[in-house]
């Protein structure tokens, strides 16, 4: 049966997401899945749509990060924009969390030569600045999400060529 075109589509067109081309590892949540939800049509623009989605290590949170750290060229100073959600509510950034960001090269016994600074831009919305991946090799980027006295880590690992 042929697709029916809606007579009149007044829904705001959201920006295309990277979900069509991005390879997500097993267990990671594709932000495109959220986009496919019809209820989102009425929601305001969600700037995190194109961001890489990663669950925290114990599953409490979901973070969305842009640009994808693995896409950043070696040796360039860059910033990451991060949104933190409760895994149970991936539509609304979590209001009561704090974030710190760091990175490590587990094969080398060291991490970044600089301490990134993290600035909060809104509820659950952060920008980590001053990162520079100075060497090729295996990198682990750590997102430590704190709520009250409890901290849980989300981690993005990749090999930088």
């Amino acid at each position: 049966m042929a697709c029916q075109q809606p007579a009149q589509d007044t829904r705001p067109r959201s920006a295309p997401t990277a979900s069509a081309t991005k390879k997500l590892e097993p267990g990671k949540i594709d932000p495109g899945q959220v986009d496919a939800d019809a209820s989102s049509a009425q929601a305001p623009a969600r700037p995190w749509n194109a961001a890489q989605a990663t669950p925290s290590n114990a599953g409490t949170y979901l973070i969305r990060v842009t640009p994808a750290p693995a896409s950043v060229p070696q040796g360039k100073v860059f910033a990451l924009e991060v949104w933190v959600f409760d895994a149970k509510n991936p539509e609304q950034p979590a209001a009561d969390v704090r974030l710190s960001v760091d990175a490590d090269m587990p094969e080398h016994g060291h991490g970044l030569p600089r301490k990134p600074s993290v600035e909060q831009r809104g509820p659950g919305h952060f920008v980590a600045s001053g990162l520079r991946l100075h060497m090729p090799g295996l990198w682990e980027i750590y997102f430590d999400i704190a709520r009250g006295a409890l901290t849980e880590r989300a981690q993005i690992s990749f090999k930088l060529e």
Partner: peptide, 16 residues
């Protein structure tokens, strides 16, 4: 060797 000595300057510009 290129792990530290990388790019056209042959240095990662950092300290080890």
């Amino acid at each position: 060797c290129r792990s530290c000595h990388n790019g056209p300057t042959f240095s990662d510009g950092e300290f080890h």
